[in-house]
């Protein structure tokens, strides 16, 4: 600003730089963009220039920086939002605990107090019971009758898994093979499915596989124990006379 004959652009630049310097000084940090450029290695000693020391490119950069910097609005005063959020978080934590506390001896709590009939997700392994005594398990869109209490426990089902549904709902699924306990005596190759206390001979391996069984499910019991059970229809029913265990 102490030039003898400054041009208008220089005056404008100086004004902008002054304003920028003041603002940066108010923020309490140095302003890097207006640092004096380093002295050239071979300075010209005679007749120092009367124009400002900053090169024109640096001036343009500074102008761009000044023009690009939007003026920050006044910083808004605190409304103690941190405390409010902290309290909200504590209230939600308390509610989470509250809705998860069981309020009766069956372990029912507020979060799961609503009946869940509408919330059934159809999937393999879903245990269903209609108005009758029979309990079914869904497998590949078929309902498989669990043929005995032994089979129910053997296959790892629990009473709390049983979903009571309407008979109409059950009827939409075609019946698959029954799910039974499998017995085999050590000295015989024959496998029997036990349904309601009655043994049913499974004709051959393809039938065994077709029924959805696996060899791990076959329990080895004494031949006498199998012989004591009354015989039912073989699987399939037209398989012929069942052999002795």
């Amino acid at each position: 600003m102490k030039q003898n004959d400054p041009s208008k652009i220089d005056q404008l630049l100086d004004l902008l730089l002054d304003a920028l310097q003041e603002r940066q000084a108010a923020r309490g940090r140095p302003f890097a963009a207006i640092e004096t450029p380093p002295e050239p290695e071979n300075p010209v000693t005679e007749a120092p220039p009367t124009i400002p020391a900053e090169p024109e490119a640096a001036q343009n950069e500074t102008l761009e920086a000044v023009l690009a910097e939007p003026e920050l609005p006044e910083k808004l005063p605190s409304i103690q939002l941190d405390r409010m959020i902290g309290r909200l978080a504590l209230v939600i934590l308390a509610l989470i605990v509250l809705v998860n506390i069981p309020y009766n001896r069956y372990g029912t709590n507020l979060a799961r107090a609503m009946p869940d009939a509408q919330a059934l997700v159809i999937r393999d392994g879903l245990v269903l019971k209609g108005s009758g005594e029979e309990i079914y398990v869904l497998e590949n869109n078929h309902k498989r009758w669990i043929s005995s209490l032994d089979a129910f426990t053997y296959y790892g089902y629990r009473w709390e898994q049983v979903n009571l549904v309407d008979d109409d709902f059950l009827a939409q699924f075609p019946s698959g093979p029954a799910l039974s306990i499998l017995y085999k005596c050590p000295t015989s190759p024959h496998v029997f499915a036990i349904e309601n206390g009655v043994k049913r001979w499974i004709k051959d391996i393809p039938t065994f596989v077709e029924q959805g069984y696996v060899w791990d499910d076959v329990q080895i019991v004494s031949c006498a124990a199998i012989e004591r059970l009354p015989s039912g229809l073989p699987i399939p029913p037209d398989a012929g006379e069942p052999p002795s265990p």
């Binding site: 959020i85 909200l88 939600i92 809705v99 507020l110 979060a111 609503m114 009939a117 509408q118």
Partner: peptide, 21 residues
Amino acid sequence: AVILLSFAPITLFFLLTTSQY
């Protein structure tokens, strides 16, 4: 996360008043 927290009471409300998964 803050917006989710602000929705938590609404989610809790529906948790207690509906059972449709």
